[in-house]
């Protein structure tokens, strides 16, 4: 008796198999974008695995964080590799989610009936950014300390609830050891839990609704559409892409390692070139460029309100878009993408 038969006798795995096999992936010039979701998932798995290994040695606390990271990268066998992979895949993780989001946006894959898939995806992007923000502080080095200080300062400027939010994040009036332990628990307990819930929802909805068919293919009769079974054809291809991504991460880890820098010192003056992670750069640069006052409100508050409004519109695109304005929405997306790229590049050049 094969394992398959043994399992079939106990569970109806054929039903699961047919459920998995029912999903078809359209084959066309844009099929390559369909790998982005899988790559993001793969990077998340890497994050979880390397994160668990790092947690074996990492000791949160103002007096221990920096030292334990130093210990990991210099004394623990392959500890350096774990940290490098964790850091690099974290950045690639956010990058692929961003890319995935824009490809979904421009291919209009968020439209009915996939509105909730878009919302859950947006939540996952938001959570990935919070993952990045909270993880950035954990080595407790100078750059992370001051970047977190600036980041939480900006949070403090949110109208009405800013002060409360800032205190909630910092676990006090300023960034301290208490902030570090708070960020650690957010990064390793709260966020993974919430993320997995949304990820589960996201994947289930995709599986139930199937892959989005591009508009150009919708006109072609169903039996004439060029499709590929998701399982095992697309999954095997996914695996190839995952392996290539793993190779890239290994290359980055060896040749472009992340510096640990100096230990955070709250009494030291902020070093030059304090900047947030690259995915916050466009917002940071915008806030830097805004004048002190716009009309009757502070420039920073104006910027935060603007981003809040922009984010809300972006979030609710599936519900706001009307078919006759479809092109206008595409232009809006191009504008947003151009804005993000320009401001990010500007932030690094200036």
């Amino acid at each position: 008796m094969s394992i398959n038969d043994w399992l079939q006798e106990r569970f109806d795995i054929e039903a699961v198999k047919s459920f998995a096999a029912k999903k078809q992936v359209p084959v066309f010039f844009g099929s390559v974008w369909y790998y982005l979701g899988g790559v993001s998932l793969f990077l998340f798995i890497i994050q979880v695995l390397t994160g668990i290994l790092l947690a074996l040695y990492y000791q949160p606390g103002a007096a221990t964080s920096y030292e334990s990271v130093k210990f990991i990268v210099s004394k623990v066998e392959f500890g350096w590799l774990m940290r490098e992979i964790h850091s690099w895949s974290a950045n690639l993780f956010v990058f692929t989610i961003f890319l995935h989001m824009f490809t979904v946006f421009f291919s209009k894959a968020y439209k009915k009936p996939r509105e909730l898939t878009w919302l859950s995806g947006m939540m996952l992007l938001l959570l990935a950014m919070v993952f990045g923000f909270s993880g950035y502080l954990l080595p407790w080095n100078e750059l992370a300390y001051f970047a977190t200080k600036v980041g939480t300062d900006i949070t403090g400027a949110v109208p009405f609830i800013g002060e409360f939010l800032s205190k909630l994040l910092r676990a006090g009036d300023d960034v301290s050891g208490a902030t570090l332990t708070r960020f650690y628990s957010i990064h390793t307990a709260i966020l993974p839990l919430v993320f997995i819930v949304f990820l589960g929802l996201h994947l289930t909805m995709i599986q139930v609704q199937g892959m989005h068919i591009p508009e150009s293919m919708e006109k072609v009769p169903e039996n004439k559409r060029k499709m590929m079974p998701f399982f095992p054809n697309f999954v095997l291809r996914d695996l190839i892409v995952w392996l290539i991504v793993l190779n890239i991460i290994a290359l980055l880890a060896v040749f472009f390692p992340w510096e640990l820098g100096l230990k955070a010192d709250s009494l030291a003056s902020a070093p030059a070139g304090i900047r947030p992670e690259w995915y916050f750069m466009f917002m940071f640069q915008t806030l830097k460029l805004l004048p002190a006052h716009i009309l009757f409100i502070e420039g920073e508050v104006f910027g935060i309100l603007l981003f809040g409004l922009g984010g809300a519109i972006w979030f609710l695109v599936p519900f706001l878009e009307k078919p006759k304005y479809s092109r206008l929405w595409t232009a809006f997306g191009v504008g947003i993408l151009a804005y993000i790229i320009t401001l990010t590049v500007w932030g690094y050049l200036v």
Binding site: N233, R237, I240, L243, L246, N247, L251, A253
Partner: peptide
Amino acid sequence: FGLFVASFIITLLVILLYLKV
């Protein structure tokens, strides 16, 4: 050196998977 070995193995796996597909 480790990277070279790992890359070689991964590339080999990629080729094998591609052929398998």
